[in-house]
Design a protein around this nucleic acid. Structure first.
Length: 584
RNA sequence: GCGCCCGUAGCUCAGCCGGAUAGAGCACUUGAUUCCUAAUCAAGGGGUCGCAGGUUCGAGUCCUGCCGGGUGCGCCA
């Protein structure tokens, strides 16, 4: 049960009955009525703003509405007390019995607690990573990869039918550059002396084995041919090699996709022409000349008539070109076709996870989605800000131009997949992220990965200990659900139960807002409440989790611990992180 | 010049479609270990929520204008 949804339903019903009884006018709009955990614990277990939001439309004083509502809520058995506070908040305090029943419910559900059917099978497409197939992934890419993957996990957990997608930019000039770079390495592999890699080609060493593999497959046949002959062949070979590299990188991170969509295929199948024709038939394309861009050196600028998409009709700042001067499509044009393709495949909800450098494209892409779907599809773009890589507080130099950048593989090798994944989710996507290679391995309070993992390990440890000292009890969650929990009456214990019971609400909020980082914060708070209780047991023997002299209390406490373990494990699973059983 | 993101404690950041006395960690000061892992916990100080207006019963949150930082700006992707 989502406690807050439950209370919200109860309150909605009570208000409607108040309307029916004439205490309030009929036909009130209750959409703004909310029940949420109050910031201050003294305000109770749940607070409702109904009286404040309804006062105006009901033309009553907030406190008067609150008093009416409080009077009715008082009658309910699960509610211990109701207070009208401040300007008209209705603060609810639930009985201990209610909370114990929720803990039992959590245990009876076991893994999957908090899962819901919010999405009701609604299809949603999450596109992430989508880096150009020109080299290995670096740490910056890891952020988008993890955010997209965790978001997809979360949405799937909450009842959405999620498709995880990677858009392969295998058309355009950059893959030609890739092909030329590989050809240089190929000549090298064939025994030619190539010297320094020419300016404008990719210099990275990762292309050396690709050149060698090409030589091994095709021998010397591309040495004497003109570029126009070898380029398409080498390009295909190189793209395959790069995608293999990228997939391996993603594997190392535990990130997977259901669909890889090829830009080249999209163009070849005429899908861009289709999208163009569709926009044209809606009279959203015209021949026009754009203003020169300001604030940057524009030596080469000359006014030119182009095919322009009326993006300004949909909130963009300027209309956008669809064709380059050589007649080929712009990146934006193929991207429109790609998003149109997603919509035609039956997705009304699209999420794109992009890097910070694409921030300027959000408006035009949203405009395009609105245009091609007649406003029936939504696009949410999650921009992931930069990752600042540090080593014990000192910035780690990264230079893509010199072909020297910290690869994802290096970082995963250094600190492990789980650490990378968790850290990438500890910030809002639009806030920059510091990633300190040294600090994320520290075993201390300020390392969130450790702190949460340690709580899980401690819970496991106590359960192991319980199995030793009270061998006659079964300690599976299902068995513990039947325990007598009434001794869990210490404020710290009840506080922990309440936090566990917020899990469904946290998941729902994170899923609807597309904000997986909220889970990381909740896990940290939960771990904190658990660590606190653990230490309390040192001062106060009555609160110790495992005590062979008192098997009934031990059973109840192990039930609580089992709940903690389940929720932390659930959260980590959504993040794709393996919970640890013990710290070493 | 324009767009987008950000501006909250000394530092790094939360703050959930506006809600009550603005929170956490780090750092600093002090304390807790014969006992389930002290790899932890507790207590304390620390704020004009960038600035100024506005909307509202109520603004860190919404609107407008400034200031500061980041990022991007026809045919590159």
């Amino acid at each position: 049960m989502n406690v807050f949804s439950h209370l919200s339903e109860v309150i909605h019903r009570e208000i409607e009955e108040l309307c029916g009884a004439g205490a309030l006018p009929a036909g009130l709009d209750l959409s703004a009525v909310q029940v949420e955990p109050p910031r201050e614990a003294e305000h109770g277990d749940a607070a409702c703003n109904a009286a404040l939001v309804l006062a105006k439309q009901a033309r009553r004083k907030p406190r008067e509405i609150a008093e009416h509502l409080a009077e009715r809520l008082q009658e309910r058995t699960e509610i211990r007390s109701v207070d009208v506070a401040g300007p008209g908040f209705v603060n609810l305090r639930l009985t201990d019995d209610f909370w114990w029943a929720r803990l039992a419910e959590l245990l009876a559900t076991g893994p999957g607690y908090g899962a819901d059917d919010l999405g009701q099978g609604q299809r949603i497409n999450v596109e992430y990573v989508s880096t150009n197939p020109t080299g290995p992934l670096h740490v910056g890419h890891a952020r988008g990869a993890v955010v997209g993957d965790a978001l997809a996990n979360l949405l799937s957990h909450m009842g959405f039918a999620v498709t995880r997608e990677y858009y392969v930019n295998d058309a355009g000039a950059q893959v030609d550059t890739l092909a030329r770079s590989v050809h240089a390495r190929y000549r090298e592999a064939c025994g030619e002396t190539i010297g320094a890699i020419p300016e404008g080609l990719y210099p990275g060493d990762y292309l050396v084995p690709v050149g060698e593999a090409l030589a091994a497959r095709d021998g010397r046949r591309w040495l004497e041919e003109p570029e126009s002959v070898w380029l398409p062949e080498v390009r295909n070979f190189a793209i395959d090699a790069m995608m293999g590299l990228i997939r391996d990188d993603l594997d190392a991170l535990g990130v997977r996709h259901d669909v890889f969509s090829s830009e080249r295929a999209l163009v070849a199948e005429g899908r861009v022409d289709d999208a163009y024709a569709s926009l044209e038939s809606s009279e959203l394309i015209y021949r026009g000349v754009l203003e020169p861009p300001k604030g940057q050196r524009d030596d080469d600028w000359e006014p030119r008539e182009q095919d322009l998409f009326r993006a300004t009709r949909f909130g963009d700042d300027t209309d956008r070109p669809l064709r380059k001067s050589d007649g080929t499509w712009t990146y934006f044009a193929t991207d429109i076709a790609y998003h149109r393709d997603k919509i035609e495949r039956g997705f009304a909800d699209l999420i794109d996870v992009w890097g910070a450098d694409h921030g300027g494209y959000v408006k035009r892409m949203k405009a395009a989605v609105a245009a091609i779907s007649n406003d029936s599809a939504t696009l949410d773009v999650k921009i992931c800000q930069m990752v600042k890589l540090l080593d014990d507080g000192e910035p780690v130099a990264m230079s893509k131009r010199a072909g020297r950048f910290v690869t994802l593989r290096d970082v995963v090798g250094e600190v492990g997949r789980d650490v990378v994944r968790f850290i990438m989710l500890t910030r809002r996507n639009d806030a920059p992220l510091e990633f300190d290679l040294r600090r994320v391995l520290e075993q201390s309070r300020d390392n969130p990965v450790f702190y949460v993992q340690y709580a899980h390990a401690r819970a496991c440890s106590a359960l192991r200990r319980g199995a030793e000292l009270v061998p006659e009890t079964e300690l599976t969650p299902a068995a513990l659900a039947g325990a007598d929990l009434t001794c869990l009456d210490d404020p710290a214990e009840l506080d922990l139960i309440r936090r566990l019971c917020q899990w469904p609400r946290v998941l729902a909020g994170a899923a609807l807002a597309h904000e997986p980082h909220r889970i990381a914060y909740h896990l940290q708070e939960l771990a904190g409440a658990f660590h606190l209780l653990w230490t309390r047991g040192k001062d106060d023997a009555r609160l110790r989790f495992v005590d062979a002299e008192r098997p009934a209390e031990t059973r109840a406490r192990l039930a609580l611990i089992s709940g903690v373990r389940i929720v932390i494990a659930e959260g980590l699973a959504l993040f794709g992180v393996e919970p640890v059983q013990e710290m070493r």
